[in-house]
């Protein structure tokens, strides 16, 4: 359709914009639709990916903040582009969000914007948490309860944390007009009820939508391969894979732990193309692990479902929970998660 090069319709009394766009190829959906039309098969993902690299931009991030993000269990969400979100208004947002949360907690009582509560909401930018310079800046939202005993600077307790980021989200950024901010990946830590409240506020305010991001077994095996391929000086934990056997009344889980060095050795023997990981390599890697298991226990793991992967880099569960352990590959992990989130929102 792009090749047609049709002159535009007269803007007034013409067709509504999106119909016209079907013919001029100017619509932001055009590219997406075209790509979806071509693929047609659901769930097609690239068959090769780059090995996670340490991003040079990550050096800008405050190490304290990075430390704060590590070793916590995050629940993953995908987030559609936010309309009219502005980084200059963060302070205002925190006031509004605080009042909103307060009002929601005591339904029926109105709340003054400037009022002082037992908690506060802090928005802060995580500069450098991006893959390229085009990626919008990530930001962090924290709900902090003020300790009641002494008002001054005594230990404030963080009740809830959530952060929004976009690492190598180029495919999404291309399609979205300037009024939108694309931070497709949202990670939350804290009570689900708080996530619901804050999520609702974001949805209402920026006309976006949160969706739980679950990780399929297919993508988990990718994670297993990618994270095994990472070079680490010392390993903190064993590489562990969890398979689930669907049976009633309780499902049976099979845990498969491997010495991380052995896993790396296996990967190196499978891996051929430098800097890239291909689908075949991932399949082969998992197959090798399965056949090894079969040889010893006579259990065919390929008939079960991979539900959890944990390595020294990070650990991920199929129901959309992730824990990042290694700061060096933080960006790499986020790149893949961003890709999954973008796939989900498109």
């Amino acid at each position: 359709m792009d090749s047609l090069n049709v002159p535009e319709f007269t803007p007034k009394h013409g067709v509504p914009p999106r119909l016209k766009d079907y013919f001029t190829g100017a619509s932001p959906f055009q590219k997406q639709l075209a790509s979806v039309r071509k693929q047609t098969q659901f769930g097609q993902t690239p068959s090769r990916r780059k090995i996670p690299q340490c991003s040079p931009l990550q050096e800008n991030v405050d190490p304290q903040k990075i430390a704060f993000l590590l070793n916590k269990q995050w629940t993953l969400y995908s987030l559609t582009p936010m309309y009219k979100f502005s980084y200059t208004n963060l302070k205002k947002y925190s006031t509004l969000l605080k009042a909103f949360v307060a009002a929601e907690k005591q339904k029926g009582l109105a709340v003054d914007m400037g009022e002082d509560f037992k908690f506060k909401v802090i928005f802060s930018i995580l500069s450098g948490m991006k893959g390229t310079h085009r990626d919008p800046a990530a930001f962090l939202v924290q709900v902090v309860s003020k300790s009641q005993l002494s008002s001054n600077n005594s230990e404030d307790k963080v009740i809830w944390t959530g952060w929004f980021c976009c690492v190598h989200g180029d495919s999404l950024l291309e399609n979205v007009p300037d009024d939108f901010t694309c931070l497709p990946l949202f990670l939350a830590n804290g009570a689900e009820s708080n996530t619901a409240l804050i999520g609702t506020w974001f949805q209402k305010t920026f006309d976006c939508r949160f969706t739980r991001l679950t990780i399929s077994a297919f993508n988990l095996s990718w994670m297993a391969a990618m994270w095994t391929s990472c070079n680490l000086e010392h390993y903190r934990a064993a590489t562990e894979l969890l398979w689930s056997v669907p049976c009633s009344p309780q499902s049976l889980d099979i845990s498969y732990a491997i010495n991380p060095e052995d896993a790396k050795a296996l990967w190196d023997s499978v891996h051929q193309t430098p800097e890239e990981i291909t689908q075949e390599e991932v399949d082969l890697f998992i197959d090798c692990l399965c056949s090894h298991f079969h040889r010893h226990f006579k259990i065919n793991l390929s008939a079960t479902r991979l539900v959890c992967v944990s390595t020294s880099v990070a650990s991920a569960h199929t129901d959309g929970k992730i824990k990042i352990l290694c700061s060096k590959y933080l960006i790499g992990v986020l790149t893949f998660l961003t890709e999954l989130a973008v796939f989900q929102i498109e």
Binding site: P11, S27, T80, Y83, P177, F180, C208, R209, T211, I345
Partner: peptide, 17 residues
């Protein structure tokens, strides 16, 4: 009768989700 593209983008992302 709006010519604003953002309207449709907003609707699009929400609806597909």
């Amino acid at each position: 009768c709006l010519q604003d593209e953002t309207v449709w983008v907003r609707l699009y992302y929400w609806m597909i989700q």
